[in-house]
Structure formats: structure tokens, C-alpha cells
Simulated assay, not measured.
Amino acid sequence: MSGPRVPQNANAIYRAVNRIFEGIEVPQRDWQEVIRYMNEELPRFEQADTSYLVLGSYRGQYGHRLREFANCLNMPTNSESIVLGDTLDLDTAVIPEFDIKINLLGEFADSIAGVYEKEGGGESPELGVCRSLFARKTFVFPRDYTGLTRDSLETREDVIQAALSVYYTDFDNIDEKNREQEKKKRELASLITAAQREGIHITERELTDIIKERTASVDEEPAVYSWVHLSFFKRWEAMGQCHPWTTLDELRDLADEMPGPVRPRWETEFDIDAFLDE
């Protein structure tokens, strides 16, 4: 049996471990946990030609959509994505578990993808670490993001977000519901008129279909973010590394915006007529 070998990207691991232990004294158990995590999780990245760390919300429907996106990244057989929240749990006395995971996986991955749908939870710390350490290889995918401040209709996405805000307006009773439905119809019609006046071409049918698709795949009110989130998104937007989405299908398609191997597109590679008898 061959002896231990030097892992790939040994310099990256050295940088990550230095950050993890910087300035603190830890018991032997913490060292052992870091080594255990490296031995369990990093070989998956070593064996792939292209590796991705996927960040975001890991529970409920948020987690479902996050993993759908990760699966799309895995479609090329020579790529590997790891969802941070799905990795090995650690039992440390001093070093926070998140600190170990984000430093090792973030340093070792070729690219980092953050899928965001809300302002609560651990998303802000993740964004802060990525902005500080891994900005150039991080790509963010915020649901319903249209910019830092937008007071008027400037793009098709603005119109869609405004329409969703109208659609998800709350009402308390049946009478109010009926009145609100009529009010919503009028507001959506007014919105389309205003959009067309601004040179944004979208029809009532298109807007209705988009809302139906959205409620079928992501039945959520428009996402709201803190100014901290928005500032981070704006930074990556300026770098060309921010890709907003509205529906699950859009999120799946945006996996192609990540660097790495191209996913197979069988419908463009083959002519079905070539497989049919004349």
C-alpha cells in the first residue's frame, strides 16, 4: 500500500488552515475534526475537473431549489458540486463549524455559487466571507433582485417584480378579496400601459403566464433583502457575476452562467429525423 501523498492544491489548503487557526489556541480535538473534514469532503473536489461550492438557504423549499441548482451544475460528468449545508457535521470545542467549512471548501473549489431568496438566516455571513476572500470566483443568484434602488420601470424584470407585488397583495375577507381581485386586474393593466410607454414590450398574456409559472414553481412573495445583501449583490453585478431569477426554470438555466464544462444539450446535438426510418 502506498503511503500518504501531498493533496492537490496543497497551498490552498495551507492558506485555509492558517486562517482557521489564526490567533487562537485550540484543543487537539479541534485539530482532529479539521483533519477529519478535509479527509471526508475534499477528495470529492480532487476527483473532479471542475468543482463548485454552493451556498444559500438549506431548508424547506429554499433548500429544494438550491439543490436543484446544484444538480444542474453536476450534469457534466467531470464536474462536482457540494452544498455547504449537506457536508459532514463537526464536533469542535473552540472553532466554529462554519468557519472550518467555508474556509476549506471555499478555498478548494474552482467556483462558488450563492443562491439567495431572503434576508434572514446565515446568508449575510456567507456573502461577507466570499466578498472578502473569494470575490473573483463567486457568482450570486438572487431571486427577484432588480438593483439597489429602482423607483421607476426601466427593464422587463422591473415590470415582472411590480406585477408580482400586485399579485401577492394580502386581503382579509371574501368581500375584500373580490374587490381586490378587480383592483389587481386594473393595476396590472395600468402597469402594462406604463411599461409600454417606457418602451418595455410585454403583453398582458405574457405577464399572466409569467405569474402562473412563478406560482407553480416558486409560490413566494417577492424576495426582500437588507441593504447589506443589496450592496453585496450590486458589487457582483458590477463584476458581471450577479444573475437574478424569478422561476425555478430560470434558476436551472442560469447554471450555464457558471464557469466550467458545458452541460449536454441533446436537442441541439442530434437531429431526431436521423433516428427515424424513412
Rank of each mutant, 00 (worst) to 15 (best):
E267M: 13
H229R: 14
F45V: 05
M239Y: 04
G128L: 09
T246C: 08
T92E: 04
H243R: 00
R179W: 08
H229D: 04
A223C: 10
S217G: 11
E123G: 15
G3V: 13
S111M: 12
G122M: 06
V17P: 06
E117F: 13
L90S: 08
T92W: 06
K177E: 15
Q8F: 14
P27D: 07
A10C: 10
N39G: 10
L230Y: 04
V54M: 06
R143W: 00
R67V: 04
A12V: 08
R59Y: 12
T155I: 07
A113V: 03
D30P: 13
L127H: 02
A163L: 05
L127A: 06
F233Y: 05
K177D: 15
D219H: 12
H229I: 02
D277E: 06
Y37K: 03
A109F: 02
F270E: 08
P142G: 01
G106I: 02
E68Y: 10
G147V: 03
S231C: 11
L188N: 01
R44W: 13
Y168Q: 06
F108T: 02
F232E: 02
E68C: 14
F98H: 04
R131Y: 09
F108R: 02
L251F: 04
G56M: 04
G23H: 04
Y14G: 08
A189L: 11
E68M: 15
E213I: 05
N178E: 14
S190F: 12
D175K: 12
V224T: 15
S132N: 15
F232A: 07
A70V: 04
R179S: 09
